[in-house]
């Protein structure tokens, strides 16, 4: 895998990242299989080049942007972020990427835009999970525009200083560290600026369990399990559970985005 030159970032956590083995061998990427070991096994099936992202909706310069084009001029940084899965496990991942707001600035967000929608690749011949209707393909996610513009929100193209492995969402994926992992959509082929809240796959499927916001919140439980604590992957069989932090530990940066909102209602 190719090396990526990336600057360190003040947004990185000082916590020790999980190993490459853990990060690349334990994935929720249903397009490549529902078992967490499946995506690595099936990663080789995915064709990553060429890759283009359709950017449309309320933007000044809509169109199909090649990956090289998107990356030219992007300020790449290493962002070591905590990752909290809605399933109550967590990791620390050294992503390489750039702030989404750079790309949005480039395509020109129109004044009416309030949300950003994302879509993952649909290619059943290369993605065995998509041959069955486990989810309503394509996988879709979305953010409010201010969330998308926040400097913590990145489009990642690598980890551990190298190109992104396919099972982690190559070649380009979203990372929103204060939200549950499923918001950080993988292998993006479309970004749409909209006035209305975009459809999000898990939210549409089970809205009681998966909200549009999906902010990490130890006080708002998933209906089927508590979100108060989490298991850090890689701690071994006898590692204690850790208390889950509000906004996954990024409250100082993002809490103001939700001032005055009832987070139990807008979960």
């Amino acid at each position: 895998l190719g090396q990526i030159v990336a600057a360190p970032s003040r947004y990185s956590t000082a916590q020790t990242p999980n190993t490459r083995e853990e990060i690349t061998g334990y994935n929720n990427f249903y397009e490549l299989g529902t078992d967490k070991a499946d995506p690595r096994k099936n990663a080789r099936l995915l064709t990553l080049k060429p890759w283009a992202v359709q950017i449309d909706g309320l933007v000044d310069r809509p169109g199909s942007y090649g990956l090289e084009d998107i990356l030219s001029g992007a300020q790449m940084e290493e962002r070591i972020y905590r990752l909290r899965c809605v399933e109550a496990w967590s990791m620390v991942v050294p992503w390489v990427g750039f702030e989404l707001n750079q790309l949005l600035a480039r395509v020109g967000v129109q004044p009416g835009a309030k949300y950003v929608g994302f879509e993952t690749l649909v290619r059943p011949d290369e993605m065995p999970g998509q041959r069955r209707a486990i989810l309503d393909w394509p996988y879709r996610e979305g953010l409010r525009l201010d969330e998308a513009m926040h400097p913590l929100t990145i489009l990642a193209t690598g980890l551990y200083g190298e190109e992104m492995p396919a099972q982690n969402g190559a070649p380009i994926r979203l990372v929103v560290p204060w939200k549950y992992g499923f918001k950080s959509i993988k292998s993006i082929v479309r970004i749409t600026l909209t006035e209305r809240e975009p459809v999000c796959t898990w939210n549409a499927m089970q809205s009681q369990e998966y909200g549009f916001y999906a902010n990490v919140n130890p006080e708002v439980d998933h209906p089927r399990w508590s979100q108060a604590t989490e298991r850090r992957i890689g701690g071994g069989i006898f590692a204690p559970r850790e208390p889950t932090q509000m906004f996954n530990g990024y409250a100082a940066e993002v809490a103001s985005l939700y001032a005055g909102m009832d987070l139990a209602k807008f979960y």
Partner: peptide, 11 residues
């Protein structure tokens, strides 16, 4: 378990 065959999340 003893030979590390339980994957990344053995619990």
């Amino acid at each position: 378990g003893a030979t590390g065959g339980l994957g990344i999340d053995p619990v």
